[in-house]
Amino acid sequence: MSSVTAESSGSGSVPERARVRHGGSGPSPSLAVVEAIADLAGVDPADLPEEGVVLYEHVDPDALNSLVAGRSDADVSLTVAGYDVRVGPDSAVAQRSGN
């Protein structure tokens, strides 16, 4: 399982961003996106559909993996159900839209 790094800007405040590293022995880029959004939503990744977040309704996960995996110049940005996501060469970073 991967580790999520939460970033907040105040004492005890809700995390504003979540970063999940992907590749190597970690999750695929698309799974890293799901894990980062789940962390911000405060739910298990398997429960995201109940929160109205279904990744494949916004992007083809296989296409995202193909665009990013193993590329040092990867930089994909997308919005998924109210979350702004940037997928780079080694991590996915999600934040609530408008932050």
Rank of each mutant, 00 (worst) to 15 (best):
L67S: 08
E50W: 02
G12F: 09
V54E: 12
R19P: 00
D62K: 14
V14G: 08
G52M: 10
S77Y: 07
G82L: 02
D90I: 05
D75K: 14
G12N: 05
D75S: 09
D60S: 13
D39C: 03
R71G: 03
V59H: 05
T79P: 01
D73T: 15
S13Q: 14
D39Y: 02
A46N: 06
S72Y: 13
V59L: 14
P15D: 11
D60V: 04
L78H: 14
G52W: 05
A46D: 03
V59A: 13
S72E: 14
A41E: 00
P15Q: 12
E57C: 15
S91E: 13
A92N: 06
V14D: 11
P61N: 08
R19M: 04
I37P: 02
G88W: 00
A92G: 15
Y56I: 10
Q95H: 12
V54I: 10
Y83K: 05
P27N: 14
S30Y: 06
L64V: 09
P89A: 09
S13W: 08
S13L: 12
E57A: 10
R19I: 07
P49R: 01
L55N: 03
A63W: 09
D39K: 00
D60K: 07
A74L: 08
P15R: 14
V43I: 06
L31K: 02
G24Q: 06
L48Q: 06
R71K: 12
P89N: 05
A69F: 00
S28C: 12
G88I: 03
P49G: 03
D90P: 08
E50N: 00
A32R: 00
E35Y: 04
L48K: 02
V85D: 01
G24H: 07
H58T: 15
S66C: 09
D84S: 05
V33Y: 00
H58G: 11
A36L: 02
R71V: 15
V85S: 00
R21I: 04
A46E: 12
G12A: 13
R86I: 11
A41C: 03
L48I: 06
D75W: 12
D75I: 06
G70C: 08
L55Y: 03
H22P: 08
E57T: 14
D62N: 12
D39T: 08
S91T: 10
G82W: 00
N65Y: 08
P89T: 05
A41I: 01
V68E: 05
L67E: 15
T79E: 07
